[in-house]
């Protein structure tokens, strides 16, 4: 564990708490893509099958359980509790376009051709692009509540911080994980546009609005 990864994980935790806070206080999941949230559940379930056979640490264990539980809980809130506040007509990204290619990529590029490893690779690829339906929705509406943008920013910061973590691990431990690194760089890259608007508008106290 190093500081970059710890801060990255904390940013990931923060993003989940911000999202829960947004849903609970506004009693609405307006502006949040159900599809993206559903993809995160799938990401966690496929990545953390190793919970059953590979012990890493108590930290790792607790975080995995938390990510699975919280993502399922968010899905429950969106699907049942605050269902009327979700507008499916805005959440129209076709996730088949993400699931299919990620699955094929996982079959081709994995570390071992076995179920757990293919699922792991699938989860890495899927996580990289899972934000697409959310960004697509943002693009369609052209604006977002500040709290929603804080959620997205924390999520972007989480993956961005994993990059210095990998560089640090390369120099201190001599290990590289090409699948995670490539997918992680792509994933972070997807946030660049968002970050630009976030830093130049939201953090200056303006409304998050995309140029027409």
């Amino acid at each position: 564990m190093n500081l970059f990864r710890l801060l990255g994980d904390l940013a990931h935790l923060a993003s989940i708490f911000i999202l829960l806070h947004k849903i609970q206080t506004t009693r609405s999941c307006r502006g949040i893509s159900f599809k993206t949230q559903a993809l995160y559940v799938l990401v966690f379930l496929t990545r953390y099958v190793d919970l059953f056979f590979h012990w890493v640490s108590l930290y790792n264990f607790v975080m995995k359980i938390f990510f699975i539980a919280s993502s399922c809980y968010i899905l429950y809130l969106m699907k049942y509790r605050f269902r009327p506040t979700h507008d499916p007509s805005l959440d129209t990204f076709k996730i088949e376009y993400l699931l299919g290619p990620c699955f094929v990529l996982a079959l081709i590029f994995n570390y071992h051709f076995e179920l757990a490893e293919v699922l792991w690779a699938f989860s890495i690829y899927l996580e990289a692009v899972a934000i697409f339906p959310q960004l697509f929705m943002l693009q369609r509406t052209g604006e977002a509540e500040a709290i929603t943008t804080h959620y997205l920013a924390a999520l972007g910061v989480y993956r961005a911080l994993y990059i210095p973590n990998w560089i640090y691990r390369y120099f201190t431990e001599g290990v590289v994980d090409p699948i995670a690194v490539v997918a992680g760089i792509v994933q972070t890259g997807l946030y660049l546009d968002f970050f630009y608007v976030y830093f130049t508008k939201v953090l200056q106290g303006q409304k998050f609005e995309l140029p027409a």
Partner: peptide, 10 residues
């Protein structure tokens, strides 16, 4: 085993 790093990250 080339994947020691893989499964200790979240």
């Amino acid at each position: 085993e080339g994947n020691a790093i893989l499964h200790d990250e979240l």
